[in-house]
Structures are given as structure tokens and as C-alpha cells.
Simulated assay, not measured.
Amino acid sequence: MAKYQRILGGEKNDLTGKPFTKEELEKVGDLYIEINGQGIHENNPKIHNLANELNRTIRSVENQLLGFRAVHTGKSGRANFNSLIPKIWKEKNTQVEKVEVLKERELFDEFKFRISSQLKNILGKNLITDDFVAVFELVKNSFDAHAKKVKIIFDKDKITIWDDGKGMNRRDIIDKWLFIAYSAKNEGVEDIEFQEDKNISYRDRINPNRSYAGQKGIGRMGSDRLGSKLDMTTRKVNDDTYWNLKFDWDEYEDDALDEFSDIEIEYKNSKTTNFEDFENGLILQISNLRNVWSRKKLLI
């Protein structure tokens, strides 16, 4: 294009002297991002095109671009600029940062495994195909947590497994219970806090090498086999906080494109609990049962 010729006295049109609107400045901000803050001069054809679109003078659009650069870089050179520019730039810059994060993921995470929420079915009700095995796995985990007593309560549409084991704090829940396929027992770090404890699990006395699903870090998924909802309450020995987490396993089945880790888990913590005589351990309340537990079935 022909070199821009400055007009003596300054280029003017019908909008000269009128402040740029927010909508106009957003378009100027988009152009600033597009050109990466470079080439802000009156001969840039992109500035000409935007000036024509906004019916603004080339020099006025250039001035607003310089205003964005002043806010972006924090450097002097444009002391007076539209008061809307800092706010608009903050909004635009946040969007740009998100785009850059996505670009980085495309570049660096392209060959990493992504895990569909459907993994829940594979490790839960599809793998543990027997109700009794599912209950066994959960009870086994209780004794592995140094429980001396485990209660299994069958209600009309709820199964409760209540133990008096060592329980969990926030860090344990995140690093162990919610870390699928990780087994602290298998890694040899489950009982570090209880190395002086002489009350070794009876299964360890019988056969220390025996390995069920629980030792592979997926036995806790047995609750999915039993029912679609899980309400978990726990408190660690010598800790003063009760933690409650609620799982709706059906949420993991809505869309196979959902990622396993993106499903939010409802939780809360408190210094008290509604469960009487519950000082430490783990309580699992499994509801919306998938199968009927008849009297005959319970007596097997």
C-alpha cells in the first residue's frame, strides 16, 4: 500500500474528539494481541483496516494501540490513554494466558495418557463382579487400616461398613484413597505410623503375600459394585477433624469424554459428627443399591 501521508494539523473526521467506546477499544485490544504489540505505526495496513472499520482516524487508532502497550509493558511513552484500557487489557490478558496454557498443553501433553471417566466402570462394577467380593474387599481394607472391629449393617436400601481403624486425614484422603491404583500397603508405607504396633492384621499372619484387589489399590471401588452412591466419613487417630466425602458414581457415566479427574467430589469437614461413639476410623454408607439383599442372600 502507498505510504501514509500525514495531514498538516492532524487528520480529523466526524468522531474526532469523541472518546473511544468500550466496544471499539475491545477491537483495538484484539488487534494489539494479534500483532503482539509490534509494528504500531501509521503505515501498518492492519491499523488502516481497523480505522476504516471503526470510522476512526489512523492516528487515533495508533494512539489507542500505544495506550495498550503502555499498560501491557508498564513503560512510559504514553501517559494519557483511555481510562477503559487497563480494565479491558486485564480481561484480554487473562484470555490470552488461558489460550497460551492450552497451546502449551497441545505441545507438551500431546503424548500423555488421558483417562476417561469410564475407568470407574472398568475398576468398579465391571471388575468386581460379585457382591460378596465387593463387601470382602471393603472389610479387608478396614482390617488393613488396623481396625479391631468392623460392623456391616444392611438396611433396606443401604449398606454401612463401619470400622475403628486408624482413619484418614485430608492428606491421606488425597494421597491414598483418591489416588486410584495406588496402594500404600503394596508400597510398604501404609503402616509407617504403626511400626511399633504389635496388632498385625490377621491376614498378614495367615499369608502376608496374599494379594486381592485391595492391595492393588482398587478394592475401594467395590462400593460402585454395591451401589451408585457413597457417603464416606473418616477421622484419623489423634486428629480433631472429621472429613465427609460424597460420591455419585453415576456422574462418571454421563459422558465418556469427561476426564476421570475432572468429576468434582462434594466434601466438608467438621470438628463434630452425627455418628455416636465414632472417634476414629472409616464409615462407608453405600446407597441406591444395585441389587436386592434378601434374607436368603444374607444368610448364604
Rank of each mutant, 00 (worst) to 15 (best):
residue 226 L to Q: 14
residue 230 L to I: 11
residue 141 N to A: 14
residue 208 P to C: 12
residue 8 L to V: 15
residue 19 P to Q: 13
residue 202 Y to D: 10
residue 232 M to Y: 14
residue 14 D to P: 01
residue 29 G to S: 11
residue 223 S to G: 13
residue 166 K to P: 00
residue 234 T to I: 13
residue 272 T to P: 00
residue 61 V to R: 03
residue 113 F to R: 15
residue 265 I to Q: 08
residue 117 S to W: 13
residue 117 S to G: 09
residue 291 N to Y: 07
residue 32 Y to Q: 01
residue 174 I to G: 00
residue 253 E to S: 13
residue 70 A to F: 07
residue 26 E to S: 11
residue 201 S to M: 10
residue 196 E to W: 03
residue 109 D to H: 10
residue 118 Q to K: 15
residue 11 E to L: 09
residue 149 K to D: 11
residue 95 Q to M: 06
residue 60 S to A: 13
residue 269 N to C: 02
residue 265 I to M: 02
residue 124 G to Q: 14
residue 72 H to E: 15
residue 153 I to R: 10
residue 137 E to T: 11
residue 184 A to L: 04
residue 279 E to T: 03
residue 135 V to F: 01
residue 70 A to D: 00
residue 79 A to L: 07
residue 43 N to K: 06
residue 187 E to C: 05
residue 161 I to M: 02
residue 161 I to W: 03
residue 230 L to D: 03
residue 143 F to G: 06
residue 282 L to F: 04
residue 127 L to A: 07
residue 85 I to A: 03
residue 117 S to R: 12
residue 113 F to I: 11
residue 268 K to W: 09
residue 201 S to W: 05
residue 256 A to F: 02
residue 1 M to E: 07
residue 264 E to P: 11
residue 298 L to M: 05
residue 134 A to Y: 03
residue 75 K to S: 02
residue 174 I to F: 06
residue 94 T to G: 00
residue 154 F to Q: 07
residue 148 K to Y: 04
residue 75 K to R: 13
residue 128 I to E: 04
residue 19 P to D: 07
residue 172 D to C: 04
residue 227 G to M: 05
residue 219 G to Q: 12
residue 164 D to H: 04
residue 162 W to L: 10
residue 123 L to S: 05
residue 98 K to C: 01
residue 80 N to L: 04
residue 193 E to M: 11
residue 74 G to A: 06
residue 182 Y to R: 15
residue 125 K to V: 05
residue 214 G to W: 03
residue 71 V to I: 02
residue 197 D to K: 13
residue 43 N to C: 09
residue 109 D to E: 13
residue 243 W to S: 07
residue 65 L to H: 04
residue 120 K to T: 14
residue 124 G to H: 08
residue 93 N to W: 09
residue 233 T to S: 14
residue 14 D to W: 01
residue 131 D to N: 15
residue 249 W to E: 02
residue 155 D to G: 09
residue 290 R to Q: 08
residue 83 S to K: 12
residue 272 T to S: 10
residue 223 S to C: 15
residue 89 W to F: 10
residue 271 K to S: 13
residue 290 R to H: 06
residue 41 H to M: 12
residue 138 L to G: 02
residue 166 K to Y: 11
residue 50 L to E: 05
residue 46 K to L: 11
residue 257 L to M: 01
residue 153 I to W: 01
residue 54 L to V: 08
residue 201 S to I: 08
residue 244 N to Q: 15
residue 132 F to C: 03
residue 200 I to V: 14
residue 241 T to S: 05
residue 277 D to Q: 08
